[in-house]
């Protein structure tokens, strides 16, 4: 978590649920292909992943172009189709899920293992990858990043795909405490 010299900002970060009690905001944020790929291009270097592109498509699916240097088998390149799962809500449904509907085969075990090892070395437990599913435990991820106190504010997080962009729908809700 960042630290702030401003005491008001620090207080807001320490207890956002209390500081912003009564807040009820619905935010729609389109993430265009260009923007997503700028974000991916800015990823830290020094990993076996040499190429990583996202290609959002209509009909709620997107493609990931991935090339990586895997042990023994060498460079592997795959185009994987992902379908975003149901909305994330706290605390009932904490997983941000993506079904892998195409592109990975049973033989891709080494690739999956490689990505999983990479993910585990950089992120906390809470990111699962297998040949049919990628899922991210949002509260665990936020906790790892130092934003645990913001988790209860995430009433709903829903990611969908349309042509050339992913749409992020956020519902932030801080219930006023009953006195």
């Amino acid at each position: 978590m960042p630290t702030f010299s401003n005491s008001a900002v620090a207080a807001a970060f320490a207890d956002p649920g209390g500081s912003f009690a009564g807040t009820d905001l619905r935010i729609t944020l389109p993430l265009t292909r260009a923007l997503l790929n700028e974000v991916l291009a800015a990823r830290p270097g020094g990993t076996p992943v040499s190429e990583l592109y996202l290609d959002p498509e209509a009909g709620n699916k997107f493609r990931v172009h991935l090339a990586a240097a895997a042990p023994i088998i060498g460079r592997v390149a795959r185009r994987i189709t992902l379908v975003p799962g149901p909305a994330v809500s706290f605390p009932e449904q904490p997983w941000l899920q993506f079904a892998i509907t195409d592109g990975l085969k049973f033989l891709d075990r080494p690739l999956i293992n490689l990505v999983q090892t990479l993910v585990e070395s950089r992120l906390p437990r809470g990111v699962d990858i297998n040949s049919s599913l990628i899922r991210i435990h949002v509260p665990a991820l936020l906790t790892h990043l130092g934003y645990q106190q913001f988790v209860p504010l995430l009433h709903r997080v829903h990611l969908t795909s349309e042509a050339n962009r992913l749409l992020l729908n956020l519902h932030l809700l801080a219930q006023p405490q009953q006195v």
């Binding site: 207080a11 500081s19 912003f20 807040t23 009820d24 905001l25 935010i27």
Partner: peptide, 18 residues
């Protein structure tokens, strides 16, 4: 231009304390 289509709707509340 990448942010076109963004929207925010609702209410933002701040306590007296803050």
């Amino acid at each position: 231009s990448d942010l076109q289509g963004s929207s925010v709707e609702g209410q933002f509340a701040v306590t007296d304390e803050l």
